[in-house]
Design a protein around this nucleic acid. Sequence first.
DNA 1: CAAACTTTTGGTAATAGTTATCAATACCAA
DNA 2: TTGGTATTGATAACTATTACCAAAAGTTTG
Lengths: 153, 153
Amino acid sequence: MQPEKDFRLTRQRQIILEEMRRMRPHPNACELYDAVKSRLPHISLATVYRNLEILSEKGFVRKIITSGRQKRFDINAGAHYHAHCILCGTIVDIPVATEVMRVLPEKPDGLENFRVMETRVEFFGHCGACRSIGTTAEDEDSRRGPVRCSPAE
Amino acid sequence: MQPEKDFRLTRQRQIILEEMRRMRPHPNACELYDAVKSRLPHISLATVYRNLEILSEKGFVRKIITSGRQKRFDINAGAHYHAHCILCGTIVDIPVATEVMRVLPEKPDGLENFRVMETRVEFFGHCGACRSIGTTAEDEDSRRGPVRCSPAE
DNA sequence: CAAACTTTTGGTAATAGTTATCAATACCAA
DNA sequence: TTGGTATTGATAACTATTACCAAAAGTTTG
């Protein structure tokens, strides 16, 4: 147990949090980097990664679990679940006040010896937009495949 | 829509599936590679990766969603959930016949336009072993940090 | 204020898990 | 057999993330 070192809410961290609130939800590090760069042109990608990690330890943001290879982050502090569209990759927030939440027991069978500290429910399926289009999602704007950082100038 | 190409259950694929049943659950590609290599010494790591992907498309195995950077795979075809120990990294299966499953509505509030095809529940907390030890997990055998492939010979 | 110390940053190299490529091989159907 | 398709093994390439480190920023102490 190392002595906790003090945390400074630097300008970079403030702007990371501000941009996360402003932009569309669940960005990955590169999307966020691009957004932050418009206000802090000299920020480093490493700073964004580093701070996402630290901010999630501190509870300002949380990491989303995904099966993809990029990490995504979430500014919404309140408890909620996610619905992942397996066609276009969109992630939709499901608010906490749902049947699911009311109904999920705090400690289900099989977890007798386990101290449950967090429960996450993830839904996978087809989002409304994709259903109305068919099997191929054409709405580029809602796609969420891997996103690369803008090339350096 | 490409014409589905035919799937051959090759010796490599058979043994991958057999080893997945035999070994401890939720291996990553490298652990599995090591296990399979004891029976097929010339198998390539690429074959393991490739087939895990294909076998999961075909429904023989499923990918586990994690926040880490390695993928893990699961041979247990039936529906079940996972409990992740945040101290030692162990993943425990929670059988399907629990309150959770019985009680989880097929389509909760907030998902009216979403066609739910799969629901996963992930629990995070401290497993029994870690609780009895304290805050640091000493049981090397149950740790599940990143696992590297055995070095080439 | 200055000195000493801690934390953070930007730039970049390194890491590591995963994918892509491709010639060679195995398998299958005619 | 022959021709076609699927798969494999070997290895190179890719890429998201992390590590490193000197410089800068911020904090505390004298």
